[in-house]
């Protein structure tokens, strides 16, 4: 159980990390919050946005602000699984004897940037499945554990879909959150100009070590959630299923598959992280409502009608949040 000093310390560290990120990144508060929530929830994040919004820069900034090993993979159609996880190479020792030796791929790191992940073939994308879920890779008959903490931050471009391979459902479900990079407003653009075209910024300072990050992850898991709040989360996730009695009209009409149990865990874990950000030791309805869109938007599959009518999953989730009652029979305000 977290005590007050550890809670205060965690908030202090988070603020320091946030300040470091904001030295280089303008705006993107929700994006930064989501990445931090993912970081503290032991999850992986999928960042989606048009080119030039600073997704890659954000991930690189995060790696600079953390005392973590960082690796980047630029996904291309000719990328092979072995290029990610590594391969067995024939090595010759001093005595001239040859033997196989596993050469680790870039996945053996702590913070992995999978840039434009949807440009690789599904076979290559799937190479990340085991690493993301079990924090280990298997080559041949040998398993290799990854370092903790391990986090994948993938980016993808929603346009220029030609020649891309949309992530399969099993792959996309491994991402705790899917975060949308939005276009900056005029004020933010002005700041971006100043920072990018002015004097070089001072180098980033690493403010959080791997050990401290692991402590904070434990703190997140110690945040409590009451049964009635848990019940609200369950009802909210069940409401994304068209066949459920509490499903909203839009869900009934446009949804083929609702959120998986992993989606529910993602909502609750993210909500716990958000509660910690707010200095609370309990999850609230608002935390769950805030966590639901990034945790569920990539886990809800539209049916043909929904696809044809161009239904936005964000609207579906908003309706679910709005219609799911917090207290017997009362919808959220």
């Amino acid at each position: 159980m977290s005590d007050e000093p550890s809670l205060a310390l965690a908030r202090e560290r988070l603020e320091a990390l946030r300040r470091q990120i904001q030295r280089r990144i303008v705006g993107h508060h929700d994006l930064v919050n989501g990445i931090l929530a993912c970081l503290l929830s032991s999850g992986h994040a999928l960042l989606e946005g048009v080119p030039g919004l600073g997704k890659t820069l954000l991930v690189k900034t995060l790696s600079d602000a953390l005392h973590l090993e960082f690796a980047r993979i630029q996904f291309t159609p000719d990328l092979m699984p072995a290029d990610i996880i590594g391969t067995q190479m024939v090595m010759q020792d001093d005595e001239g004897r040859r033997h196989f030796q596993f050469q680790q791929g870039p996945v053996f790191t702590q913070l992995l940037l999978a840039d434009e992940i949807n440009r690789a073939t599904p076979k290559t994308q799937s190479a990340l499945l085991e690493a993301m879920e079990e924090k280990r890779v298997t080559v041949g008959r040998t398993g290799h554990a990854l370092q903790e903490p391990f986090m994948v931050l993938a980016t993808q471009n929603p346009i220029e879909m030609e020649g891309t391979y949309p992530l399969p459902e099993a792959q996309i479900d491994r991402f705790l959150l899917k975060l949308n990079a939005t276009y900056p407003d005029a004020g933010e653009l002005s700041q971006i100009i100043d920072r990018a075209t002015g004097a070089p910024l001072p180098p980033m300072e690493a403010v959080l070590s791997a050990g401290e990050l692991m402590e904070m992850r434990e703190l997140v898991r110690s945040v409590v959630i009451a049964d009635h709040v848990k019940d609200y989360a369950i009802r909210m996730v069940l409401a994304t299923h068209a066949g459920n009695a509490d499903a909203t009209p839009m869900v009934r009409r446009y949804v083929r598959h609702g959120a998986s149990p992993r989606g529910l865990l993602a909502v609750v874990l993210t909500a716990k992280a958000l509660a910690l950000f707010a200095g609370r030791i309990n999850v609230s309805f608002d935390d769950l409502a805030a966590a639901a869109p990034p945790a569920l938007r990539h886990r809800i599959l539209l049916n043909f009608e929904g696809e044809a009518e161009g239904i936005d999953v964000e609207d579906l989730i908003a309706e679910v949040i709005r219609e799911t009652p917090t207290v017997q029979g009362e919808a959220r305000a």
């Binding site: 409590v224 009635h228 709040v229 509660a275 609370r280 309990n282 609230s284 309805f285 207290v327």
Partner: peptide
């Protein structure tokens, strides 16, 4: 009583602190 605590949380925007306390 739990329902009352939840309502008090919602009315005063206590972020479910009171109801969680009561439940625990």
């Amino acid at each position: 009583a739990l329902d009352v605590a939840i309502r008090a949380d919602l009315t005063l925007n206590l972020k479910q602190r009171l109801s969680t306390a009561w439940e625990f």
